[in-house]
């Protein structure tokens, strides 16, 4: 029977890229044990890639950083790519971002030069077949657990995938139409208005941090008015910034306390660091600001050497913006659900 079963699917790693890790919405409720949250750097992109393959938003994606891997599809599969545009190709032919793509058995997914952003998300219909550790699929690199064997992908790894039960009828209809043997890109894509608002040199909104008042007036003004360049030493733990040196108006001893994604802390060097997904749970540097959650996606997709511009906002606005973002995701979820359930 010419039926696509969708079971026992796997993807083989031909070359691993710079840093490919399995990530989801993160590992919560264990910060008091000193366990970091991990999770996708660009969580909205991760969620949208999942939606585009019929998954729920909390499914794990492969996070691909700057230099992409080469992945061999041992079976036919429905995938989607979101986030940074790292020039994705199937068997050397460019494919589009932000839409469902049917990948026939025996195809190789590879990447070229980074056109925009830093992190791409690869979702596969049904998700990856890996165990959850402490309720999350995310990879905790330093403690070596979660994700794929607690580490980044290596050559010859094989990623097993689940069966995509939800959209199996759609996948089968593609298969029966005979298009199972070549790449098919959906002719639709989400309204760009509903996608994260990336910018090469983005404006990043913040609220004042607990130690804002301890910083000199010159430092406060610098944060508000000057550009800060993302340093090449940035990674999943935090983005190091170069710009005017920030300093306290007089020395103060700061006791270690909990920190979070978006905390802008200033070590003795005067160069601020914005904490991101793999940040430690506690820190003892003065915190001048907190980047609002709604701006995490444009923040983490800012490449080294590009500038970010800080802009102050209020907590009420931050909540409002997050709520609007939640509404956009819900709209996307409903629209994509309708599209994926239409007959081909």
């Amino acid at each position: 029977m010419n039926e696509w079963k969708g079971a026992g699917m796997s993807i083989k790693v031909i070359s691993p890229g710079l840093l490919c890790t399995i990530q989801d919405a993160g590992r919560h409720q264990y910060k008091k044990d000193g366990i970091i949250t991990s999770g996708a750097m660009d969580l909205d992109a991760c969620k949208i890639a999942n939606l585009l393959t019929g998954n729920n938003m909390e499914e794990a994606c492969l996070e691909i950083c700057m230099k992409g891997p080469e992945l061999y599809f041992e079976n036919s599969y429905l995938i989607a790519l979101s986030g940074a545009d790292l020039s994705p190709m199937l068997d050397g032919v460019a494919v589009k971002m932000w839409r469902p793509i049917w990948v026939p058995k025996g195809s190789t997914l590879s990447f070229g030069a980074p056109r925009s952003g830093c992190f791409t998300y690869l979702a596969v219909a049904g998700g990856f077949n890996i165990p959850k550790v402490l309720e999350s699929y995310s990879t905790y690199l330093a403690a070596r657990f979660g994700g794929y064997k607690g580490r980044a992908l290596m050559k010859n790894d094989v990623l097993e995938c689940n069966t995509a039960k939800e959209i199996l009828p759609l996948l089968n209809s593609i298969y029966r139409l005979g298009s199972g043997n070549h790449v098919v890109e959906a002719h639709w894509a989400p309204d760009p208005q509903l996608l994260p608002a990336y910018d090469e040199n983005p404006v990043i909104r913040f609220i004042r941090g607990p130690e804002w008042q301890l910083f000199s007036k010159a430092s406060q003004d610098a944060l508000l008015n000057e550009p800060f360049k993302v340093s090449a030493r940035s990674n999943r733990m935090g983005y190091q910034l170069q710009g005017p040196e920030l300093s306290l108006s007089r020395p103060a001893e700061i006791l270690s306390s909990a920190v979070t994604f978006g905390t802008v802390q200033v070590p003795g060097s005067g160069n601020p660091i914005i904490l991101t997904a793999d940040h430690q749970t506690t820190g003892g540097y003065p915190r001048i600001a907190n980047v609002i959650s709604a701006d995490f996606s444009p923040l983490v997709q800012t490449q080294a050497g590009k500038n970010i511009y800080f802009k102050e906002t209020t907590l009420a606005d931050a909540h409002q913006l997050l709520s609007e973002q939640g509404n956009k995701l819900e709209l996307l979820r409903m629209a994509i659900h309708l599209k994926l359930n239409q007959p081909v």
């Binding site: 919560h28 409720q29 264990y30 910060k31 008091k32 006791l255 270690s256 306390s257 909990a258 979070t260 749970t281 506690t282 009420a316 909540h319 997050l322 709520s323 939640g326």
Partner: peptide, 26 residues
């Protein structure tokens, strides 16, 4: 979502979208 005790502080992590009666309250 969770909370983390430290030397002099307790930090509460919250999901704003799940608090406040569906946006009617801050």
């Amino acid at each position: 979502v969770e909370w983390v005790p430290a030397y002099t502080t307790l930090t509460i992590y919250y999901a704003p979208l799940l608090i406040g009666n569906g946006g009617s309250e801050d």
